[in-house]
């Protein structure tokens, strides 16, 4: 995927995930993402269909989140 295809909100999510990863060594799972990134659950699934946390982590160059929630 080309970076110019990513809109502002996509970047919000990816940047937030990278920030958490730098701090904790683990990317956040969906629950943390929706609580803290400023992007809610509905938006998240619209931005990254077919598994938002998984997909955003992949695009952000991060490992797949391990959390169950």
């Amino acid at each position: 995927m080309c970076s110019e295809l990513l809109r502002v909100l996509h970047w919000t999510v990816i940047k937030y995930m990278r920030k958490v990863f730098e701090k904790n060594g683990q990317p956040p799972s969906i629950r943390k993402l929706t609580k803290e990134s400023g992007v809610d659950t509905k938006e998240l699934y619209a931005l990254f269909p077919k598994g938002p946390a998984k997909k955003a982590a992949k695009i952000g160059g991060l490992p797949k989140p391990v959390g169950c929630i």
Partner: peptide, 18 residues
Amino acid sequence: KLDIPPVREFLEMINDAG
């Protein structure tokens, strides 16, 4: 502690997730 939400919130989350 594990960030598992209460039932009501969990159902909202699942519904919002499609």
